[in-house]
């Protein structure tokens, strides 16, 4: 276990460094955004604007604002939202993050499991009936935008059949079913495609032939030997895919009236809400950096060839 410690420590350091650079770059780039962070800017008089700038410290020089900001986030204070009149950003994002993360994780989990399964079936029946079906399904899934799927699902299950709620987030797990389905189409299609390609290659390798010669059934071979080897490239993409899903899909969340964080990512930029922009950037980057780190660890667990060296 102790060979992991220096490795993890090194990685954590680099993660922190990456975050620091991102924070700094974003802070200074934001300065170039046109407009003001005040929603009512069309109607504010010049003196009112001046007063507002003074209150929120925007009349201070950029660098001192930067240092202030850094100092604050080290205390866990991410500032207040300008869009939402002085709400603490930690509260705002904190409350909204939950549903998005839940949906994201559910979608990735469900989509990947189903996608891997479909991909395996496709690979095992290469170029025959089931393969064609699975591949078509995957292509359709990639081509149809997830909000189209969302609206169709809503129409079918919530309005016509009335099995599931139309939207909102108030019926516990049942409320998450349709949005998860809509969001899972993308990871499902990706996984199916990846696994199929990898499995086809893996299934034609020598060690699989040997496994057959041992007298193993095709299915068992696929799960025991094939899957683990085919999974490796998929893990590479799973990371960023998960992050982009966890940080909310604006449209699907809107369609199902889910109080998620998706909208913040787009809206905060459009309304120049500086502190929210910083916070969501940090959030996204932190998630991404962490997921990449976890992915690397996952590699090592699955593929013994890339394990951290250092044993006797």
């Amino acid at each position: 276990m102790n060979r992991w410690i220096p490795y993890i420590a090194k990685r954590l350091f680099y993660m922190a460094l990456t975050l620091f650079i991102i924070i700094t770059a974003t802070f200074f780039l934001m300065n170039f955004l046109p407009g003001t962070p005040f929603n009512n800017q069309d109607r504010l008089s010049a003196s009112q604007l001046e007063m507002l700038n003074k209150k929120y410290g925007f009349d201070q020089p950029l660098f001192s604002r930067y240092l202030n900001y850094l100092g604050n986030i080290l205390h866990g204070d991410f500032g207040i939202s300008l869009q939402f009149s002085d709400q603490k950003i930690t509260t705002l994002l904190g409350q909204r993050m939950g549903p998005s993360i839940q949906l994201g994780l559910q979608a990735v989990l469900f989509g990947t499991v189903v996608g891997v399964f479909l991909g395996m079936i496709a690979a095992m029946h290469q170029n025959r009936g089931l393969d064609v079906f699975c591949s078509l399904f995957a292509i359709t899934g990639r081509s149809v935008p997830n909000f189209v799927v969302a609206v169709l699902l809503q129409y079918l299950f919530a309005i016509t059949l009335k099995w599931l709620p139309i939207g909102l987030w108030d019926e516990g797990f049942r409320s998450t079913i349709l949005p998860t389905l809509a969001l899972s189409i993308s990871p499902m299609a990706e996984s199916c495609r990846f696994i199929r390609t990898e499995m086809v290659e893996v299934l034609s390798s020598d060690y699989i032939e040997l496994a057959r010669a041992k007298g193993m059934s095709e299915i068992r071979i696929a799960f025991s030997h094939g899957l683990r080897n085919a999974l490796i490239p998929l893990i590479t993409v799973l990371g960023p895919m998960t992050v982009s899903l966890m940080t909310g899909s604006l449209v699907v969340e809107n369609i199902f009236a889910v109080p998620g964080i998706g909208e913040q990512f787009t809206k905060s930029i459009l309304s120049n809400d500086y502190y929210t922009i910083m916070a969501v950037t940090i959030l996204f980057s932190a998630l991404l950096v962490t997921v990449i780190f976890l992915t690397d660890i996952l590699y090592q667990l699955i593929d013994p060839r890339v394990r951290v060296e250092g044993q006797a």
């Binding site: 020598d206 496994a211 041992k214 007298g215 683990r228 080897n229 013994p304």
Partner: peptide, 24 residues
């Protein structure tokens, strides 16, 4: 045949570098 394969009649292959599952 699966009962016979590997059980009564076994086979070994040419390239030992690729004949074994690298992750197991």
């Amino acid at each position: 045949m699966r009962a016979i394969r590997g059980g009564k009649i076994a086979m070994i292959f040419q390239d030992p570098m690729t004949s074994l599952d690298p992750t197991m």
